[in-house]
Simulated scan of single mutants.
Amino acid sequence: MPDSIAGSRARPLQIQRRPDRVVATLSRPDVRNAIDQDMIDRLHELCEELEGEPKTLILIGSDGVFASGADIAELRQRRAADARRGINTRAFQRVRSLPMPVIAAIDGYALGGGAELAYAADIRIGTPGLQIGNPETGLGIIAAAGATWRLPEIVGEARAAEMLLTGRILDAATAVAWGLVSSLYEPGDLLAAAHTIADRIARNDPLATRYTKTALGAPRAAHPEIELELQAKLFESPEKERRMAAFLESRKR
């Protein structure tokens, strides 16, 4: 059931909790889940919680749309000082930096800020109706909430440049071919598929999962030393001893 962070159906982020995961549903269906300041504030609240109590996060949109972009009515009123505050950027950085994996389950539009929120996830899955991209230059702005540095890491510099400079919106098949999403499911199966991924994550050692995410997000110059230090900590972990002993015991049967 939705809890106190989500509040009533009028709240833009509906939260459901399980012991090992949280599902956050973007819910502004009257504007195709456009990301406004209230939704950003709710994301910050959720991130604060998950920073203190790490769990896998599933992000999904309501009513067949992930997020159609930033709220243009709000965006139109913003000026230089607002840009420098990085309103969406800071929230998406926080999502990206969460200790445990983030899964974006994308149906329909994931455009502009909606796409950038999806890029901040560790794992992206979608539906055949997915449409994802950054049309910001057509509105006289740039994709400044992560696309210019995250998208090249995901799809490569040449494809990212094409998307960002032309405003090209990818369909589902192209998004899979380019590695922007890993797999497709029918809309009615999308959330269940995200939970299946979360189930696989939950079967693994949480600390090893967290350290793997840390290593994945580290700058190239930090490798391989960061892996060696993280592995050194895990080699002293009681959970490593327990899991390896159980594995060896199972092979005797």
Results as ranks from 00 to 15, higher is better:
182 S>A: 14
192 A>G: 06
189 D>G: 01
197 I>H: 09
196 T>W: 10
192 A>Y: 04
209 T>I: 15
183 S>C: 06
209 T>G: 02
213 K>P: 02
216 L>E: 15
205 D>G: 03
181 V>K: 03
218 A>G: 08
204 N>P: 00
219 P>T: 05
192 A>N: 08
213 K>G: 07
207 L>K: 06
190 L>Y: 03
195 H>M: 13
217 G>V: 02
200 R>E: 11
179 G>F: 11
201 I>M: 10
180 L>E: 04
210 R>N: 07
202 A>K: 04
197 I>E: 08
181 V>W: 01
201 I>D: 02
189 D>V: 00
204 N>R: 08
206 P>D: 04
217 G>R: 13
187 P>T: 11
205 D>H: 00
186 E>G: 07
213 K>R: 12
213 K>Y: 00
199 D>L: 09
203 R>Y: 03
210 R>T: 10
210 R>V: 09
202 A>M: 03
184 L>C: 01
187 P>D: 09
204 N>C: 12
195 H>C: 14
190 L>H: 03
194 A>T: 09
209 T>F: 04
200 R>Y: 08
190 L>Q: 04
202 A>Y: 01
185 Y>S: 11
199 D>P: 07
218 A>R: 07
220 R>N: 11
216 L>R: 15
187 P>W: 11
195 H>I: 12
202 A>S: 13
200 R>A: 13
199 D>Q: 11
218 A>Q: 09
180 L>A: 10
213 K>E: 04
203 R>E: 09
204 N>W: 07
185 Y>C: 00
185 Y>Q: 09
183 S>G: 01
179 G>Q: 02
215 A>M: 12
211 Y>T: 06
212 T>H: 09
185 Y>M: 05
188 G>Y: 07
179 G>I: 10
203 R>H: 05
211 Y>M: 14
184 L>V: 03
186 E>V: 06
195 H>V: 11
200 R>N: 08
182 S>Q: 15
215 A>E: 04
181 V>C: 02
186 E>W: 06
184 L>D: 02
208 A>I: 04
216 L>S: 10
194 A>L: 09
188 G>C: 13
219 P>C: 05
210 R>K: 13
189 D>R: 07
199 D>S: 12
191 L>Q: 05
213 K>W: 03
189 D>E: 11
203 R>C: 06
219 P>E: 07
182 S>R: 15
220 R>F: 13
186 E>I: 08
215 A>R: 05
190 L>K: 02
185 Y>V: 01
191 L>G: 01
217 G>W: 00
179 G>K: 00
183 S>W: 02
192 A>H: 08
214 T>V: 13
192 A>R: 08
201 I>A: 11
197 I>Q: 12
183 S>L: 06
215 A>S: 05
220 R>K: 12
186 E>F: 04
201 I>Y: 15
211 Y>W: 09
216 L>M: 14
183 S>F: 03
198 A>V: 00
199 D>K: 07
213 K>S: 01
193 A>P: 07
198 A>Q: 03
180 L>K: 05
197 I>M: 11
194 A>F: 13
185 Y>R: 12
180 L>V: 12
192 A>S: 11
218 A>S: 14
188 G>N: 13
199 D>Y: 05
214 T>N: 04
179 G>V: 10
212 T>M: 14
206 P>N: 05
199 D>E: 13
217 G>F: 00
193 A>M: 06
182 S>W: 11
220 R>S: 14
216 L>N: 14
198 A>G: 06
191 L>C: 01
217 G>T: 01
197 I>G: 08
217 G>S: 07
185 Y>K: 09
202 A>L: 03
209 T>C: 11
